[in-house]
Design a protein around this nucleic acid. Structure first.
Length: 298
DNA sequence: AACTATTGCAACCGCCTCTGA
DNA sequence: ATCAGAGGCGGTTGCAATAGT
């Protein structure tokens, strides 16, 4: 007895399993009004019989206003596949590149659909001598979490070494001193601290700050203008140019959408037949949605 | 129609990391 | 430097929906 880690909270008497619409409403209304400074204290303050972690998860994965619902687009799936090949099972990192999608959702999509698709594709490419060959001969991604002064440091060093076919007189090394790749940039090199490009005639090393000043260098341009980067991850060559939205981080999207959250909440209410807003519709009700809602349902 | 197998996804669990005292 | 509390993350589970027999 007494072995193992203590539970995150006292679970006796707490609800488990699926959330009811009433619980959702209570959580949303509370966060709408007070925010979520302390998840552990939140359920008690909001009058929810749930553990703080459960509330956090419910909010992040389902109730947050900026959640994008519906099936993943082909572009999103491709992005996940590419990022997964780069980062592995770093679902939160992948999610940070897909505004409105959660790590849990991405993990589920990967496990149920994309993993199979990728393995099929790999089988296909290894069994057939396809004529559609990438110019990339080899690509090694190295994640080194020993990097940094402290073992507690969250920093990881990421090195991507790209070896091209002999017909392409070039090799490339991308080095990032931390793993905070925080968006799908239109130019991926912004994420890396150092880029070393070699050809038979020269070897040049650039820092990310060189980007604007070295765009005239043809080798630099070859790498930086996404001429080769997509190839190393995907042979399909069906890369549509990312639109401006793709450069936004989740945080930016969130703050942008914050203003829409009230409208969204009202829509959800209607969806759940809890049409508080339409029936009550008053400012008073909006200011104290929790008590208003529960008064109405009592 | 009834049963079984498979799939998809929300939610949970427990470990890891961060942060502040 | 150490410790504890809280949040974050990734793996796993459980269950409802759907497909197949």
């Amino acid at each position: 007895m007494g072995r193992g880690r203590a539970p995150c909270c006292e679970k006796v008497g707490l609800n488990k399993g699926s959330w009811t619409p009433a619980e959702d409403m209570r959580l949303m209304a509370y966060i709408q009004k007070y925010g979520h400074g302390n998840w552990r204290a939140l359920p008690k303050q909001a009058g929810l019989l749930r553990c703080g972690k459960s509330c956090r998860l419910r909010w992040i994965n389902y109730l947050r206003p900026d959640i994008k619902r519906g099936n993943f687009s082909r572009e999103e799936e491709d992005t996940i596949i590419k990022l997964h090949s780069l980062l592995g099972n770093k679902w939160s990192k992948i999610a940070s590149c897909l505004p409105g999608r959660t790590d849990n959702e991405i993990k589920n999509v990967w496990n149920t659909h994309l993993k199979k698709r990728v393995s099929h594709k790999e089988e296909k490419s290894s069994s057939s001598s396809s004529s559609e060959q990438s110019n990339v001969k080899n690509c090694n991604v190295k994640l080194d979490n020993q990097f940094g002064e402290s073992k507690n440091s969250s920093q990881e060093k990421i090195e991507i070494e790209i070896e091209f076919e002999p017909s392409v007189d070039m090799s490339c090394m991308l080095i990032s001193d931390n793993d905070d790749i925080d968006g799908v940039h239109s130019n991926f090199a912004e994420d890396f601290d150092k880029v070393v490009v070699s050809s038979s005639s020269s070897t040049n090393s650039y820092s990310s700050s060189d980007y604007n000043t070295n765009q005239e260098d043809p080798l630099w341009r070859s790498i930086m203008d996404e001429e080769y980067y997509p190839l190393m991850l995907d042979d399909d060559n069906d890369h549509e140019k990312n639109n401006n939205n793709s450069t936004k981080t989740l945080g930016e999207e969130y703050s942008k959408n914050e203003d829409k959250s009230k409208e969204w909440l009202a829509n959800l209410e209607r969806e759940l037949d809890l049409d508080l807003w339409e029936n009550e519709g008053s400012l008073q009700c909006f200011n104290d949605p929790v008590s208003c809602y529960f008064q109405r349902t009592l």
